[in-house]
Design a protein around this nucleic acid. Structure first.
Ligand SMILES: [Mn+2]
Ligand SMILES: [Mn+2]
Ligand SMILES: [Zn+2]
Ligand SMILES: [Zn+2]
Lengths: 166, 166
DNA sequence: TATAACTTGAAAATAATTATCTCTAATTGA
DNA sequence: TCAATTAGAGATAATTATTTTCAAGTTATA
């Protein structure tokens, strides 16, 4: 954690930016919620707990700065707000996402998966790939298990079919 | 064109929706600009030419309806506006995009490319894939050619290096 | 043609993001 | 040291995109 903060501090200094207490508090919140996909508002509320004087505008500015430095990725899952996702250290590519259309959960895939596909794109479309965004929409393993459970119960009690409701 | 409109009309009626003149005009604009990625505002301005009385809210409502019926896909390239992309008829999957970070162009890839990757995701993450979004960010073939051209010229006139400017 | 359900345009409301302004504290450099 | 410059801050205003409200109009079909 501290090491990671220090490396981010160096990255900022390398671009003539300072690691102010507000910026540090914001980075800490992102590190402490690494697997989440927080909106600016979410980050603001969490940072406020450790630095109550911070303003929402500062959070926006900090997130913008971190995005510019590729420390976070700004993503949009189509729910009306931008979300911020910490890049894994040393990751050469942006990770992928699994969005469940039933429960709304967002899981991550850290594996590359696309290296072959990108070779094809570069060769066939003569397009130099620098980055990618890949999201799958579907049904997550939790919801799938719930379905299996339900259909098992339905078989045991065939007189209580879903079609009977109302 | 007319056949396609008729099939869309049937799709609407099947869900108890009506094909109003405003909706038809909107669909026509989308068909006439099939390879583009229009924003709601873009669509509005184009529809206004053939149906000047239409309101912006109606365009938003129509685009939302067409998205719900999977006639169009709503996409977000991170430029602050939602864009609407007509689905190819009979296409089983949503097509991919190549966004050029230099000139901003957006090209399309109709090939599937992901079937193998999706098999891996279903097997390894136990996630039932229903749809996907894949965008590559990089340098398009036009910009790459421009670069090659420039470096060719620089070799011919080595006394006019870019580093000399100012 | 009657009619219930659906749609519309205009305007207002909401929501997210960005810009502007002024203040303060830190840094710089004679 | 100390005046000048600058970076970052909060407050607030402005923009921009999208959604909601509502009275009035239109549509499919019996
Ligand atoms: Mn993520
Ligand atoms: Mn497209
Ligand atoms: Zn789920
Ligand atoms: Zn280009």
């Amino acid at each position: 954690m501290e090491g990671r903060i220090n490396r981010i501090k160096k990255q900022l200094h390398g671009q003539k930016y300072k690691l102010t207490p507000q910026r540090e508090a914001t980075v800490r919140v992102l590190l402490e919620n690494e697997q989440d996909h927080l909106s600016a508002e979410d980050v603001y509320l969490l940072v406020k707990e450790k630095a109550p004087e911070i303003g929402l505008a500062t959070v926006y500015r900090t997130l913008e700065l971190l995005t510019e430095l590729k420390i976070v990725d700004k993503i949009n899952f189509g729910d009306g707000v931008a979300r911020y996702d910490l890049r894994r250290e040393g990751a050469s590519h942006f990770h992928h996402h699994l969005v469940c259309v039933e429960c709304g959960s967002v899981d991550e895939i850290q594996e590359d998966l696309l290296s072959e596909v990108e070779k094809v794109v570069e060769r066939k479309w003569h397009f130099k790939v620098k980055d990618h965004r890949l999201t799958f929409h579907g049904i997550c393993h939790r919801c799938l298990e719930k379905h299996e459970e339900e259909s098992r119960l339905n078989k045991e009690k065939p007189y209580l079919q879903e079609t009977e409701k109302v």
